[in-house]
């Protein structure tokens, strides 16, 4: 990310820290102590780093669900739904292929999860292109529906009778569970997230596909006149975003829960939206921003224990960061940044 985009983001972060500091000061807590503790909890030791990275792993992937379609000027907020469907598909695949060698099943789980997540967001993209349905509202509604379907399946047809008081699907067989990265206590989702983000960055900045996508995002009418397959680009990019969030769901199942159940709905999809915006929809910038948000999450517990701050302190800080960032965007005006969706339709301000 060029310096002229990094600096405003850092400035927004600094202003947010001042505002949040004033906020905790108003409730009688020392801001310096708060930040010192947050540093300890997030990055102060190898344990804290691993805590942070573990929480960052799903955020990288769910952020891509918003960041990729944003290249086309779309605001997609359905990462949570794609994650849930991805997890469900992974379990179903692992159970169906039980007995096959692990590499085959790993691959199949990953593909199934990405296909499920991709289908959900791809559908939102198709609705946008084919029927002009707003993708923001559609992806949100699809998320609510996906969560309801998951709960219905987990407590009905897909329920493991042995799961008794915590209704869940049957467990993924042990051979197909995903372990931790060598030398650290962080699961493979982190590596996959980084790889996916890198691949997305290459795709969006170094290929003709990415160039075409950016053209659509810049000016859909011109793109259509130039003969670009706008619909295909739209649906494929949305599907790729959904696939990323679906993969996050696969890892939640294969590396964290070992089965699918309502615990998959943990808000990673919604936090991912924030990460994407703070990363200015740049797939590469998503990585450090996800780590930052992972760190905020990792230090939340410490703030509760040591300072008696409510758990919502983390939400307040995230909210302040997001609002400050957007306000900063507007105030700096001239620098390239978030675009209105889609900007071409606002000729009076072009």
């Amino acid at each position: 990310m060029p310096l002229d985009r990094v600096l405003p983001t850092l400035a927004a972060l600094a202003v947010s820290m001042v505002l949040f500091g004033l906020f905790v000061l108003a409730v009688g807590v020392d801001p310096l102590e708060t930040y010192a503790l947050m540093y300890t909890g997030a990055f102060g030791s190898w344990f804290s780093w691993q805590n942070t990275l573990t929480r960052a792993a799903p955020l990288i992937l769910t952020a891509l669900c918003t960041a990729l379609p944003a290249r086309l000027g779309l605001v997609v907020i359905g990462g949570e739904g794609a994650l849930v469907l991805g997890g469900l598909a992974a379990v179903a695949t692992a159970l169906a292929l039980d007995g096959l060698p692990p590499p085959v099943v790993y691959g199949a789980m990953g593909l199934a999860g990405m296909a499920a997540g991709g289908a959900l967001i791809g559908f939102a993209g198709a609705l946008r292109h084919g029927r002009g349905v707003n993708e923001t509202i559609a992806s949100l509604l699809l998320t609510y529906i996906a969560i309801a379907v998951m709960k219905q399946l987990v407590e009905g047809p897909m329920k493991d009778p042995a799961s008794l008081n915590k209704p869940s699907t049957a467990p993924v067989p042990d051979a197909y569970l995903v372990g931790t990265l060598p030398g650290m206590d962080v699961h493979w989702g982190l590596a996959l997230g980084v790889l996916f983000a890198l691949a997305a960055w290459v795709l969006m900045t170094r290929t003709t596909f990415g160039f075409a996508a950016r053209m659509v995002g810049g000016n859909p009418r011109a793109a259509r006149m130039a003969g670009l397959p706008v619909g295909t680009l739209l649906v494929v990019t949305c599907a790729l975003g959904g696939a990323a969030a679906g993969l996050a769901g696969v890892m939640e199942v294969a590396a964290v829960h070992g089965r699918a159940n309502a615990s998959m709905v943990a808000g990673y999809g919604f936090t991912g939206i924030l990460v994407a915006f703070l990363a200015r929809q740049n797939p590469l910038a998503v990585i450090p921003v996800a780590i930052l948000f992972g760190g905020i999450g990792a230090s939340g517990g410490l703030l509760q224990r040591r300072l008696d701050l409510p758990d919502a302190a983390v939400l307040v800080l995230q909210g302040i960061i997001f609002v400050t960032l957007l306000a900063g965007e507007g105030l700096q005006g001239r620098l390239p940044s978030l675009r209105r969706a889609p900007p071409a339709a606002r000729p009076q301000e072009a």
């Binding site: 307040v316 909210g319 302040i320 978030l338 969706a341």
Partner: peptide, 17 residues
């Protein structure tokens, strides 16, 4: 250059928090 949908999501988070 500010997206009203993004501002809405930000304020949803801030208000809830």
């Amino acid at each position: 250059r500010v997206n009203d949908i993004a501002v809405g999501i930000a304020l949803m988070l801030l208000g809830t928090g």
